[in-house]
Design a protein around this nucleic acid. Structure first.
Length: 308
DNA sequence: CGCTTTTGACCAGCGC
DNA sequence: GCGCTGGTCAAAAGCG
């Protein structure tokens, strides 16, 4: 893993006085005096070498801490993804019968043979001719910014009509049922339910595929589907979406730094992302005159204290 | 007035 | 057969 991450050393500038102007006059005078006093100069050199060694040790410790934090974060992300995939499998098994029923319902309505993804394995999907047109399912996660909002309305760019609400057994929060209301022929449905673990997260399950392109124009944020990245299916919510998806091409620049923690393990394991992040951190610290001055002050203060 | 939301009733599958 | 559960229907109410 470290080989993928690359060099994550903080690369601290251990000679901060080099780039800082002007050099304090008092220091210059002290150096001049020190040149006249060789025993004191040797002592100062020893102190500086000791300080350099100490900084190198601290740098190494910090590097180890960052590495450890990355390892722990990756492990947690893997656990979350495992739990998500297990719960998704369980839900597919439970609803297999019902999905088959809804499939018949769609067939009666449209006259087109469609199958749910959960009804066939991928191998079967490849072998079965009627798999050419399939009902696609996906799950998206939306962060609800307003805790008082209990309407379960998810702004994903499409126009929905609510046709039912139920309290389910495994979740204290009600589940809302929506149909696409833009086109009568569009049979896309979605279920929205607040996450039992985190009530601030709305879980939207989409069933089917829009047969039109109607969307609102305010598509500010991104979504990452946990089961598919089909752009025709994945909605474009105006709220912030989170999930364990794998849309590698997603532009994360709009997600904001607060969403960094929500990036998938796969995304974080990408060496380029980590390297860019680390390079950005390092360059930001290097460019920041306040940081350099603070570091120089700290070092000069320590050295000055050592001298006195 | 037309559209959406609410909400109780209804239906079908499933396990016992 | 019965009860539980998830999904859907449809009448009434709400809203602009």
């Amino acid at each position: 893993m470290d080989s993928k991450r690359g060099n994550i050393s903080l690369d601290l500038n251990l000679n901060p006085f080099k780039d800082i102007n002007p050099t304090p006059k008092r220091e210059f005078n002290q150096v001049s005096q020190l040149e006249q006093d060789l025993p004191v100069k040797d002592e100062i050199t020893g102190v500086l070498v000791e300080e350099l060694n100490r900084m190198a040790t601290e740098n190494k410790k910090l590097t180890e801490m960052v590495t450890l934090a990355y390892q722990r974060y990756d492990a947690l992300q893997r656990q979350i993804n495992d739990l998500r995939s297990k719960s998704s499998e369980k839900e597919h098994v439970m609803s297999r019968k019902r999905k088959a029923e809804s499939e018949d319902y769609y067939n009666n309505l449209t006259g087109i043979n469609k199958n749910t993804e959960s009804s066939f394995s991928d191998d079967e999907a490849c072998r079965t001719p009627r798999q050419n047109i399939r009902i696609k399912n996906s799950t998206s996660y939306f962060r609800n910014t307003d805790p008082s909002d209990k309407s379960l309305v998810v702004k994903d760019g499409y126009q929905w009509r609510k046709y039912g609400q139920k309290v389910t057994r495994d979740n204290p929060f009600p589940r809302a049922y929506f149909r696409c209301s833009y086109a009568p022929s569009c049979q896309v449905k979605k279920k929205v339910q607040r996450s039992a673990d985190d009530p601030s997260i709305l879980v939207a399950s989409y069933e089917g595929e829009h047969n039109h392109n109607h969307k609102h124009h305010t598509q500010a944020a991104l979504t990452f589907s946990s089961t598919t990245c089909d752009p025709a299916l994945v909605p474009a919510p105006t709220s912030i979406a989170v999930s364990g998806g794998s849309c590698k091409n997603s532009d994360l620049s709009h997600a904001g730094i607060s969403n960094n923690a929500k990036m998938t393990a796969q995304q974080l394991e990408t060496p380029t992302v980590q390297q860019i992040l680390l390079q950005h951190m390092a360059s930001s610290l290097k460019r920041d005159p306040n940081f350099a001055e603070a570091l120089a002050t700290a070092l000069s203060g320590r050295s000055y204290n050592a001298w006195t």
